[in-house]
């Protein structure tokens, strides 16, 4: 049974449909990349998968004993107040929140995990800084460390590299691939089509016509060819 299976999924807000009849499935160990234009409903899909928004129709089945507490999530935007008093350590630790059902406090294991993820993201020396006073890229890395703390089986990333410099972006992709190799299932939204076809095992293209398949199938499909050409052409011109 697949980890996640969406059948005939329709998404939208209020009474406006954004996507209709979406079918795809994610198996344990997959690396699914979601691509598509601005406003095509990628973030909406991710929020629906997380249970934050109700789908208009269709259903999402979960398998392999996937529970909410096994999921890590990096939001596209985190609207925070400017003066929110929270240290980096506190925020990363809050990713371990779902792990304890009835225990009130963080144990050694959680603190260790938080520290490891801060080291992975290269932010351990920031651990006592105030989150709201850091740069956008630093904040992004902190939120990624938090997501890693929460992700036991599945990691959902909404544009993880936005705001990161090229060096850290490359590191980030390597890191995500390593995590995937260690057995973590990954669903990532990205506008970086090159990275998508390089790292992903499956691709979900959202737009007027939706496409779902393996990377190889996508590269052969008309949707894929057209999108790749447009994107790469656009980048070559720019």
């Amino acid at each position: 049974m697949a980890l996640l299976e969406a059948s005939d999924l329709s998404l939208g807000y209020d009474s406006r449909y954004i996507v209709k009849g979406l079918d795809f499935s994610v198996n344990s160990g997959d690396f699914l990349c979601i691509v598509g234009e601005n406003g095509s409903g990628k973030t909406t899909l991710m929020k629906t998968l997380l249970g934050l928004i109700k789908p208009f129709g269709g259903q999402i089945l979960t398998g392999d004993g996937l529970k909410k507490k096994d999921i890590g999530y990096l939001p596209q935007h985190t609207a925070l107040q400017k003066d929110f008093p929270a240290s980096v350590r506190e925020i990363v630790l809050s990713g371990c929140q779902g792990r304890f059902a009835f225990r009130p406090f963080y144990g050694k294991a959680e603190k260790q995990l938080a520290f490891e993820n801060m080291r992975r993201m290269g932010i351990e020396e920031l651990k006592d800084s105030c989150y709201s006073k850091l740069s956008g890229g630093q904040q992004q890395r902190i939120l990624l460390a938090r997501a890693l703390c929460a992700a036991e089986k599945l990691l959902l990333l909404d544009e993880p590299v936005s705001g990161l410099d090229p060096k850290v972006t490359a590191q980030m992709y390597e890191l995500i691939r390593d995590l995937n190799k260690e057995g973590l299932t990954i669903i990532m939204i990205s506008h970086d089509i090159n990275a998508a076809v390089r790292y992903a095992s499956h691709i979900l293209h959202m737009g007027v016509t939706c496409f779902f398949g393996t990377r190889e199938e996508y590269l052969k499909s008309d949707t894929g060819k057209l999108f790749l050409m447009l994107k790469r052409g656009g980048e070559a011109c720019a």
Partner: peptide, 17 residues
């Protein structure tokens, strides 16, 4: 700890159980 998590980012807290 739960109060901190919910206060800082309710969406994330909800998404992760």
């Amino acid at each position: 700890n739960r109060i901190v998590a919910v206060t800082f980012d309710e969406t994330f807290a909800k998404a992760t159980g």
